[in-house]
Computed example of a mutant assay.
Amino acid sequence: MSIGNSPEDDRTFPADDRDSIGRALQQTRIAAGLTVEEVSASTRVRIPIVHAIEEDDFSRCGGDVYARGHIRTLARAVGLDPAPLIEQYDAEHGGRPAPTPAAPLFEAERIRPEPRRPNWTAAMVAAIVAVVGFVGFTMFNGNDDTKGATTAAEGGPAPAPDKATSAAKPKPVKPVAPKPTESAIAAVPQDKVTVKLSALDDKSWISAKGHDGKVLFDGLLLKGESKTFQDDERVDLVLGNAGAIELYVNGKKLADKFESGQVERLTYTKGDPEAG
C-alpha cells in the first residue's frame, strides 16, 4: 500500500487563455494606434464608459442591451469582429434576455394622444352643400322674375316689387378648398416637443423619458413599427440600434445617418431641432 497523490490529482485542465472583452478591445485599439479620446469621438460613446468597458466594468452601460451595443460599436471602431465578443458577453452574463412585453409599454403613449388631424372630407362636403344651396336659391328667384314678366306682357297688373328681390343680388362666392399640409407631422403643436421614431429595416432598443424623468417608453421597437412621444419641455432618447431608426422631431425629418448597431443618446427641445 503506497501513500501519495492519486492519478486524478495529476490531471491537467485546459486553461481558458482567451482575453477578456475589455482587454481584447484595449489591445486592438492600442495596436491600431488609437487613443480612447479618438475612439470616443468616432463612436459617440463617452470617455468614462470606454475606460470602464476596457476594464470589463459594464455597470455604467445602463443594462445588457446597451452593453452589447457599446461592445459592438467599439469593436467596429478599432477593426475587431464584434460577433465573438457579443457571444462571450452573453456566455458570461446569462445570455440575451427575452424581449420586454410590448403591451404595458404602450400605456405611456396613450397618456398623450396625437393631435387631431383636419377633417378635409367634412370641409369639402360643407363647401359642396353651400354651392348647391346657392344655385337652388338663384334658380328659384329667376323663376319668380320670369313669371312677373309674363304677367305684364299679357296686360295683367305688374307685381309690386319685393324689397328682398329688388335688392342687389349677391354674387356667387366660389368656395376655396383649404390647402392640406405637406404631412400629418406638420400639424404638431408648437408649444410641445414631439418626437416620432420609425424602425425601417431592423428592430431597435428604445428608451424615451420626459423632462421630469418620467419613462415614456423602454423596450423593443420592431421592424415596421412607429412610436410618437410628446413632452412640454424636453424628450431624452437612447437608441440601441440607431441605424435602423427614421427620426422626426417637431415635424421635421432629421438627416442624421446612424450606423447599424450604434448606440445614440439624444435630447430634443421645442423649436427647430437643427437650429443653432
Rank of each mutant, 00 (worst) to 15 (best):
P14D: 07
G33Q: 12
V36C: 06
E37F: 08
S42F: 05
P48S: 09
P48M: 03
G62M: 11
A77V: 10
V78C: 04
L85A: 00
Q88A: 06
D90A: 09
D90V: 06
G94Q: 08
G95H: 08
G95P: 00
A102I: 15
P104W: 08
F106R: 15
R110T: 10
R112Y: 15
E114I: 12
N119Y: 15
W120G: 08
A123H: 12
A126Y: 08
G136K: 12
F137H: 13
F137E: 11
F140T: 14
G142T: 14
T146E: 13
G148E: 12
T150G: 07
T151F: 09
A152N: 08
A158E: 14
A160D: 13
A164V: 14
K169Y: 10
K174C: 06
P175A: 10
V176H: 00
A177K: 09
T181R: 14
S183R: 00
Q190H: 07
K192Y: 07
L197Y: 04
S198G: 01
S198D: 04
D202K: 00
S204C: 05
S204M: 06
I206R: 00
G213K: 01
L216K: 00
D218C: 02
D218A: 03
E225H: 03
F229E: 00
G240T: 01
A242R: 00
N250W: 09
K252Q: 05
G261P: 02
T269D: 06
T269Q: 10
G271E: 14
E274D: 15
G276N: 11
